[in-house]
Design a protein around this nucleic acid. Structure first.
Lengths: 243, 243
DNA sequence: ACTCCTCATATCATCCTACAACCCATCAGG
DNA sequence: CCTGATGGGTTGTAGGATGATATGAGGAGT
């Protein structure tokens, strides 16, 4: 059939997504300057040849990201980049290893300090939860989905123990992205033999946090993440105490 | 009446935002497990007492964040946390100082390490750009909008000089959020006298990066952010070399 | 001349109904 | 057993109607 009319926007995606993409491009490229007003919803609907409903859903997405500020009775305005409320890392970005290296680098920075803070601030309850995830991981012989979940829960729990919700949010985000790309790339197969190494590193981190030794916890976490990176084929440069 | 239904959910916010908040909470708390299917749009509309259109806009936002995967003819499904594509910090979260303290803490962690990496990796061009923003800041006598922009550009440029796009993205995000909340809270007034202090700290950072001294750059940045936090009424605990 | 209030207007916000596109389970027919 | 049609259920899209809200013009009162 002649779906060519849709070719103008694309084919498989839904209409709101296409509208979002087009508006996003206009904003990003500077065609729509910050502070300027968007056309009326009705005008946009006419312009793109879709219903006002579609425009509204598109604007809802842009508004969720903080790119647009819609005020009832006035109009929708482009907000500056400095006002964006969301940060986005596209899945495709993580496919090649050089990006994985950068992400692991960021992860080491965040989690090393998270471990340092957690060692000082953790409550007894925090320690209990961290230990719980550790024991869950130790129970497994092979490196499988359950192990990955326990591994990540361990890291998230440490981030939570800092008492800093932002650190917890950022660490969770990064960990989950890494988990997803590992799952995606099927990198788990050659790692079965190394699960004991991973557990040993976790034990070391847990012990340092339990002891309240901030420096030891930081060093253990830094080493662990460098090791984890190496295990998926990413080499990190030396950090801390390396001069 | 329609008023009563709105009262049930709150008053000032728009309906889709409230629906998003409620669904988000259910997903985050585990009431809605990953993989499970949401009620149909019509059922949700009845349940919340709003129109299906509102539900659709809410789902559009959640879908943009990767929390929900809606498939035509099938239904909407909760996606696992590992598939989330965006991280969000609501504007309201930054209003009180305790949250600002947490955000500054995270900022110090990231930017301290960014400075450390930048000192080693920066190219001559990076250094030139960093210096440019510094000189732009030195040219101003008072603390005004231009100063803030130059200040942030300075920090962003350092993050960029790490060569790690993720660090740059995260640092930019945090800086911009802080700038926004500073602008919002009108915290700039009592700071006019302190601009020279701020510039002096920037000079110290720049000098360390220019010299390629990673440790000095990290220490300078850490001190600077602690100082900047103090200037907006946030006190950070000691970090690094403080014991 | 100035201020305050009212009101018309433009716009977004919400609601409603209807239809199209799509997936899936079911089942008739080979 | 396999294949293809069919029907019901769900999301996707369309379009109009009404409520809510901000803005500015214009008039009444001082």
């Amino acid at each position: 059939m002649l779906r060519n009319r849709a070719t103008e926007l694309g084919s498989s995606e839904k209409l709101p997504s296409k509208v979002v993409a087009l508006l996003y491009r206009d904003i990003d490229s500077g065609t729509l300057l910050p502070g300027s007003r968007l056309p009326t919803e009705q005008q946009l609907a006419d312009q793109f040849g879709v219903s006002r409903n579609v425009i509204r859903e598109a604007i809802a997405q842009l508004r969720a990201d903080g790119l647009i500020d819609a005020r009832q009775g006035v109009g929708a305005f482009v907000r500056g980049k400095e006002q964006r409320a969301a940060i986005r890392i596209d899945r495709e970005d993580l496919n090649d290893l050089s990006n994985m290296e950068r992400l692991f680098e960021l992860r080491r920075i965040l989690e090393t300090e998270a471990a340092r803070l957690a060692a000082v601030r953790r409550t007894a309850h925090d320690l209990h939860l961290i230990g719980q995830h550790l024991r869950r991981m130790m129970g497994e012989e092979r490196w499988q989905d359950g192990s990955i979940d326990a591994d990540l829960a361990f890291h998230r729990e440490i981030a939570r123990a800092t008492g800093n919700t932002y650190i917890h949010t950022f660490v969770s985000f990064i960990c989950n992205r890494i988990r997803h790309s590992i799952h995606y790339a099927r990198l788990t197969n050659p790692l079965h033999d190394l699960v004991t190494v991973n557990v040993a590193e976790h034990v070391r981190i847990h012990a340092a946090i339990e002891a309240g030794d901030a420096e030891a916890a930081a060093q253990a976490m830094s080493d662990h993440i460098a090791g984890a990176a190496a295990r998926v084929g990413v080499k990190l440069v030396k950090q801390e105490s390396g001069g």
